[in-house]
C-alpha cells in the first residue's frame, strides 16, 4: 500500500497533539472530591381569595387570569324598599392558599360607589354601611350595623374565611318622585397579605 507523504505527516501531527493534550491533562489531575447539596427547589405559594355571595352561595375567585373579578351580590329579598328601611347583602371571603408558613390576609371593603341608572338622583338618598361578621347569616341583623361606617375590613387566617356585610338604607326623607328608580352600588374589595 502506498501512503502519501502528506497523509503520514498529518497523522504524525495528530498523534503529537493527542499525546500533548493527554500530557497536559495529566499534570492537572490532582485529588478532588465533590458532593451535591441536594437542596431541591423552593416554590412560591399561590395567592387565591374566593368570594361567595350569601343568598346564592355563588363562588368565584377574586382574580381570574390575574385580573380582578366581579361578584354580583344578591340582596336579602325583603321586598320593596321604602324610605327609612334597609336591604342587606354579604360576601364571604376565603383565604385559599397553599402557603407553607403563616399566611394571614386582610380584606377591606372600600368606599362604595353609588350611581344612578337614569340620572334621577336616587343615589343621593342611598347610604351603605359595611361591617365584618363571622357568618353570612349575620348580615341580615340590623343590630350588627350599629356604629358601622361605610368601610370595613376583616382579617382572615390561612385556609379560613371571613365575612363582610353591607346594609343599604334608603333615606327616610326620600321624595316620592324616586319611586321605581334604581341605582347601582359598587364596593371595591382589596386584600392584602399581613
Amino acid at each position: 500500500m502506498h501512503t502519501p507523504r502528506a497523509l503520514k505527516a498529518a497523522g504524525l501531527v495528530l498523534a503529537a497533539v493527542v499525546l500533548g493534550l493527554l500530557t497536559v491533562q495529566g499534570t492537572y489531575a490532582l485529588w478532588n472530591s465533590a458532593v451535591n447539596s441536594n437542596a431541591g427547589t423552593v416554590q412560591a405559594a399561590d395567592f387565591r381569595v374566593s368570594l361567595t355571595d350569601g343568598p346564592t352561595n355563588t363562588t368565584t375567585d377574586m382574580t381570574v387570569n390575574g385580573l380582578p373579578a366581579t361578584v354580583a351580590l344578591s340582596t336579602t329579598p325583603i321586598g320593596v324598599v321604602i324610605p327609612g328601611q334597609s336591604v342587606y347583602a354579604g360576601v364571604q371571603l376565603g383565604n385559599v392558599t397553599n402557603a407553607g408558613g403563616d399566611f394571614k390576609i386582610r380584606a377591606t371593603a372600600g368606599t362604595p360607589g353609588i350611581t344612578d341608572s337614569s340620572g334621577s338622583g336616587f343615589a343621593s338618598v342611598l347610604s351603605v354601611k359595611a361591617v365584618a361578621a363571622d357568618t353570612l347569616a349575620q348580615c341580615q341583623s340590623a343590630a350588627l350595623y350599629a356604629g358601622a361606617k361605610n368601610m370595613a375590613s376583616v382579617d382572615i387566617a390561612k385556609n379560613m374565611t371571613g365575612v363582610l356585610c353591607f346594609q343599604v338604607t334608603l333615606d327616610a326623607s326620600a321624595p316620592g318622585r324616586l319611586q321605581g328608580k334604581s341605582a347601582g352600588i359598587s364596593i371595591p374589595l382589596t386584600v392584602d397579605q399581613l
Binding site: N36, V42, Q43, A45
Partner: peptide
C-alpha cells in the same frame, strides 16, 4: 406566585 427557584445544581468540591 407559583414560581420556582432551583437549587439542585448546588454542590461543593474539595480540591
Amino acid at each position: 406566585i407559583n414560581q420556582t427557584y432551583d437549587f439542585k445544581s448546588v454542590g461543593y468540591k474539595l480540591e
